[in-house]
Design a protein around this nucleic acid. Structure first.
Lengths: 216, 216
DNA sequence: CATTTAACGTACCGGTCAGTCACATGAACA
DNA sequence: TGTTCATGTGACTGACCGGTACGTTAAATG
């Protein structure tokens, strides 16, 4: 028989799911990790509210008590999903900046925008899991929304920081303008999903916006 | 006793609910209209999936069979909500354009953006009901999502049309750039809800983008 | 006044939801 | 061998979900 769904590559618009951590001795993936992995796929693709815990545990090949031993509630599982999502986002984001060189923030940012542009044109693109969650859960007290809000605040600061590094006269304004473009690409990418709708204008619009701020 | 919740102004970030149509003879609002009105408030404020039909009929002061006599399903009620939303959107949008004069599309658009900027800073702002629905329902076949997609396609065309009227060298590109900014304001407005987050940069960024296209 | 017709409510359906329980299994370790 | 730890089994809960069969009311109509 060997392992079964282990070979499934699980390609998603936000990147492939990383290899599952395995138990040091037995070599078998732990139930909690399988749940995390499956929850991420389903939550991202269909939305959190649309996915039931039964569906998660069934697809993960585990059982419900395993889920509730690892996570106190579905809401907390959703929050954990978003914390993973957040961590991977920054990993990829910083990687782009590093690749372009820390002395060239504009190239790094444009690189990120180009990759977002590409992903947003993929057929099954579903935008940003963190933004989507804020739409699904208006209540600030919801644990998943908290992760989403924290992430967006951090992104906003980071963009302003990059704008300052680029030498913009009004870095906050440029940072916010860039953020609007990025969030706009997230949502319109998933509305006009195949072939990329307005998201195809992302790089061009960002370039013009940056130019405008740098000339001033 | 008199009428009870009739006086409730129902102020929402997308404008106050219009007066309920009343029966020509009895002078009483019809059940279907009360449902439509209540559904719109709840769907917008909390999301479609988050609101059950029981909550709708209870708050509307009617009963479930009245809902299902007027609408074939909850999904179709959601679609009807979005058709109303769409109609009001264009009504307000075109009104701005008319007020500025059809020979001055740029002023009309900027007027609309300014009003969006203001609404997006309101404490209970929840973005665009049509965009939110696309996030909630990834399936293209869902009746509510269909309304959302149709609306966004139409908006995209309209923005390109306005860009052309402004004399842009690449109207589609400018239209798409503006659309990214608008969608970005919808979502970040509801994430950074009070005091307006990045949405405060909407007018400035749009101005710079337009200027950039007009100089080319 | 009797009857039709339209609008509405009462009471209920089966299914699914998140979450829990006591208990069995099986491998690692001492 | 006995203990510990992660996991599975299977049954169960109470709330809620979207949706419906059927009865009631009252105004309009002949």
């Amino acid at each position: 028989m060997a392992r079964k769904s282990q070979s499934d590559p699980a390609q998603t618009p936000f990147g492939s799911n990383p290899a599952l951590p395995v138990d040091a001795k037995s070599g078998a993936p732990r139930a909690a990790d399988k749940i995390r992995r499956t929850a991420r796929e389903l939550f991202y693709a269909e939305g959190i509210r649309a996915v039931g815990v039964d569906e998660i545990v069934t697809k993960a090949g585990v059982t419900k008590p395993s889920l509730y031993r690892a996570f106190p509630s579905k809401d907390e599982l959703a929050a954990a999903y978003l914390r993973d999502y957040d961590a991977e986002f920054w990993q990829r984001f910083e990687a782009r900046l590093d690749a372009a060189g820390r002395d060239n923030p504009r190239a790094g940012l444009m690189d990120f925008l180009q990759s977002l542009n590409d992903r947003a044109s993929a057929p099954n693109y579903r935008g940003c899991g963190l933004s989507n969650t804020a739409v699904e859960y208006p209540d600030d007290a919801h644990p998943a929304r908290r992760v989403s809000e924290d992430h967006k605040r951090k992104l906003r600061l980071k963009l302003a920081e990059l704008a300052a590094d680029m030498g913009a006269d009004d870095p906050k304004q440029l940072g916010d303008g860039l953020m609007l473009l990025i969030e706009g690409a997230f949502v319109s990418g998933q509305i006009f999903h195949a072939g990329g709708g307005p998201a195809r204008a992302l790089v061009d619009a960002a370039t013009r916006l940056i130019e405008s701020h740098l000339k001033g």
